[in-house]
Structure formats: structure tokens, C-alpha cells
Write a protein that binds this DNA or RNA. Sequence first.
DNA 1: CCACGATGAGACAATCATGTCTCACATGCG
DNA 2: CGCATGTGAGACATGATTGTCTCATCGTGG
Lengths: 197, 197
Amino acid sequence: MSHMRYSRLMAVDRDHVLRTAAALLTRKSTATMDEVAKAAGISRATLHRHFAGRDALVRALESLGIAECEAALDAARLDEGAAGDAVRRLVGAIEPAAGLLAFLYTENQLFEGEQQNAGWARIDDRIAALFRRGQQNGEFRIDLSPVWLTEALYGLLGSAAWAVAEGRVARNDFTHMIVELLLGGALRQPARPREES
Amino acid sequence: MSHMRYSRLMAVDRDHVLRTAAALLTRKSTATMDEVAKAAGISRATLHRHFAGRDALVRALESLGIAECEAALDAARLDEGAAGDAVRRLVGAIEPAAGLLAFLYTENQLFEGEQQNAGWARIDDRIAALFRRGQQNGEFRIDLSPVWLTEALYGLLGSAAWAVAEGRVARNDFTHMIVELLLGGALRQPARPREES
DNA sequence: CCACGATGAGACAATCATGTCTCACATGCG
DNA sequence: CGCATGTGAGACATGATTGTCTCATCGTGG
């Protein structure tokens, strides 16, 4: 994260700018550089000094999102214990970044032809591997492919983040809503073997 | 759908333009009026004659999406039979419009402050009512609110539509993927009471 | 105190999408 | 045939955003 050396005076906190931009673009994905700058409390000129342009800013946000995803994946220890519990840990760990993820998820839609950042492929693989482990485990059903389960997780994360932002659901229910639906589904199970922590 | 009278010469098919625009904007939500016109095989001038501007075009697409949703809701006969089966019918009926829905779903994100089209509220209510019926039925679990289940359905529809468009999953699995995940979840159920058609 | 570095404010040109307009062409109808 | 209507092509002005630049200011370290 920091192979660059800060000079003695670095009033503008790059990370703060990125997180503010993430929060703003999550709500309004078409926000202008000027709006981003104002939201971060800096001038457009300074914003432009730190990020060559809008593309650079979005790419920096993408790197941030990838880093946070990787961190969440590490923190969730996907290889340990039941796969279902690992999914719970993962969703809980990824929750703070869900808004940013949702923004990047829809943003990538625009790069249709172009290659996507290789970091996403790695994250996809790690999550898909978790679902695959659960299938080989016997925990997860095998008629839903790991790729689809991964996509579904992204979709639920985005929907939940948006629903929370809109105030339609409570923020405290975030992890529970996603995990329970993703793992258990909407159907009421007569005697479902629970694997709570 | 047609209280307007076409004059003797109406070379441009409004519906065809709308569907072409929907298909294009689904893939590239920032497409230009010029791109939309080219995709529809008409000139930008003509496109502008039929839709006063980009806003008008998007609003027309929104009306189209609402109409298709309502049609799917009607076709699915949400009040008949098991709620789970109604969900299956609904997803199957809504599949052709999933791409358009995904576009509008993310597009509405931009109208943060403004009021959304009242049509969506009605659709939300009908879907939420279905989930509520399933809960009162005893079919669906009650710890996931109908509002969240509705949002989750939207998210899964969008994710699936995008995954299909990207070629990551097979188009034929669309309904199965969504319904099975939404209703049954990822966990393998030892002896789950099936209610297939 | 002085100098350096970072910032804010603003001017500026360039670019792009939009919206409007005109004109020429084609097609169907009387 | 002649007229009306819809269309395509393109010009044009407008507004918004972007990217670059300059200049004044402020704070900190030497």
C-alpha cells in the first residue's frame, strides 16, 4: 500500500479522499470531479494533482475495493471450518466495503470490451473456491455452480447495500439478510441442520 | 399501449426503437443518443423527433419496463397455488425483461432525491405481497422481511442477467439459478419438501 | 526570518453530448 | 403528376465536464 515516500508536508490525506469519493460515488455514480473534491473538502485543483483525471480516480477506487476485498477474504479465513460459517464471516467482513463494491460492480459494466482488472478475477476465484469447497464438502448443493453463487453473492451485497442506503431495511440486518438468504433461501425448512457459530 | 393514432406513414417503429435502446443501454448504460439511434437504425434527428431528449427516452424505457413487469406479474398469477410456484412463474415470465430491469434498477440509483415513478412502488407492493402470502402460508420463513426478499429478487435478476450477458453462465439456467437460490438457498437440504410443477 | 512545498481560487481552452435547426430526398396519397 | 409527410444528413449553438495553467496564500522546516 505504501512504497511511496511522503514528503514532510502532506496535508491532503489520499486515503481520506478515496473513501469520501467512494461514499459519494456510491450514492451518485455520475458525480463530477468538482463534487468529489467538495465532498472531500479539497479544491478541484488539488484533487487533480493527486489523481490525474477521473479515470485515474476510478482506477484508484478500484484498487481500494480490491484491497478491501482481499483483506476481507483473508480475515474470513475461508479455508477453516464449515464453508457456511466461512460465508458468514466473509459477508460480515466485507460489509463495510459493500457500498464501494456495488459502485465498482456497476461501473465495470461499462468496460464491456476492455479487460477488467486482474484483481477481480483473483477475488472471484477465491470466492468460487469457497463455494466449491462447500459443494465437495456436502454442505452446499451441487446444482448451482460456484460461478453463479459468486455472482449471486455480489448481487445480494449490492442490493442490500442499496436497500440500506435507501432506508428500506435496517443496517443491522445486513449480514443476516444476505447470509440467511444466500445459504438457506426463502423457504421455511422443517428441520434444517443449523451451523450457527 | 396504443391510444395514439398513427398517420398513414410511420416508418419508424417506436416499439422497435425502445427495445433496441433497452438492449443497448443494458450493455452500455452511458450510450449516447447517437449510439442509440445507430443501434436502432435511424438517425439522431429522427430519434429526437420521437423522444424529446435523453430523459424522455429513459422515461419511456421506464414505462416499458413497468409495463413488462406488470404483464409478467399478471401472467404469473401470483395469487394462485403455492407461493413458491408463483415465484417460479414470476421469474420465468420476467426473464425476457431482466436486462431492461437491471438497467432501470441501476438508473434509479441516480434519482436519489427525486421521486421515483409510482409504477415501481406498485410492482414492489405486488411482489412483497407474494412473499408475505408465502410467509402467512407457512411456506416462507418469517425472519426475512418481504421488502428484503423483493430487493433480493431484483438483485438476483440483475446479477443473472449480467452474468448471462457476460457469458459466465448459461442462458438456459436463468430461471433455475434464480429461483433455486432465492427459495432454497445454497445449503444442501437433507430432505427438502419439493414443490416442483 | 526566509524559502519551499502544498493548497485554493480562478481563468482558460478543449472536448463531448445535447438540443434545435435547415435542407434535400424519398415515399405514399389524391 | 404534385403535394404532404417522414426521414437522413449535417450545421450550429449551448451547456457541462474535463484537463491545464497561473497566481496568491498559508504553514512548516531550516
